[in-house]
């Protein structure tokens, strides 16, 4: 198990010094905590234990409470598939599936995921046996640089489940009815995943193919 500071500080580690998990190793000496029940003194890192499953495998971690789920996955469990783009919930590169629902892992604290089951892009398929969505992205060239792709794929898998579950969207014509498995619905639901390379048309084709196949 890797705790904060267990691995050598790399150039990348320095670059992402804003990440709590790395910053904690360089935190200043604790100042005296104010007299407050259970609250953190100024600048004093607080550690907490949390246990959750990632791609079916249970993990027990002790983390700085500031560690986001994204940083826990990337920096502590060394699952680099999930990407840090904006770190503010705007780009979707960090999308993972928690208990069946896609979320921005950058806007969620790891310690709040006690007992949860998390699926990252590494858990969807393997290089030898790709998930149908991964295979469709390859077939349709649904990326250019590939940085947003793990988030796009996790989001896309969840989007098809959401449409099947009847969850409405902004473009659903009859809000009380069942949403259609259409390109318009997919496009609207994928708007939380930004692609700077602009591979959107191929991404839609990839998702559309999986949607059509599973509908049949």
């Amino acid at each position: 198990m890797h705790g904060p500071g267990d691995f050598e500080l790399s150039r990348r580690g320095v670059l992402i010094g804003g990440a709590a998990s790395v910053a904690a190793t360089a935190a200043p000496v604790a100042e005296a905590a104010p007299e407050q029940a259970g609250s953190a003194g100024a600048g004093t890192p607080v550690m907490a234990k949390v246990g959750f499953k990632v791609n079916g495998k249970p993990h027990a971690l002790e983390l700085d409470t500031r560690t986001t789920l994204l940083d826990a996955l990337r920096e502590h469990l060394l699952l680099g598939g999930t990407k840090k783009g904006c770190d503010h919930g705007q780009c979707g590169a960090c999308t993972v599936i928690v208990d069946g629902r896609r979320i921005n892992s950058c806007l969620s604290l790891a310690v709040m995921h006690e007992g949860d089951s998390i699926t990252t892009v590494e858990g969807l398929g393997t290089p030898e046996k790709l998930h149908p969505m991964q295979a469709a992205f390859v077939k349709h060239d649904g990326y250019q640089c590939g940085y947003c792709t793990p988030g796009q794929i996790c989001s896309a898998v969840a989007v098809l489940d959401e449409i099947r579950a009847g969850i409405p969207s902004h473009v659903t014509g009859d809000i009380a009815g069942k949403p259609a498995m259409s390109a318009d619905e997919i496009r609207e639901r994928m708007s939380g995943n930004i692609c700077r390379c602009g591979a959107y048309s191929n991404i839609i084709e990839a998702i559309g193919e999986v949607a059509a196949r599973r509908k049949a």
Binding site: G89, G92, R102, I103, N104, L107, S155, S169, M190, S191
Partner: peptide, 10 residues
């Protein structure tokens, strides 16, 4: 459904 993204609404 007019607000935020699917991930955020979850």
């Amino acid at each position: 459904v007019a607000g935020a993204s699917g991930q955020l609404r979850n």
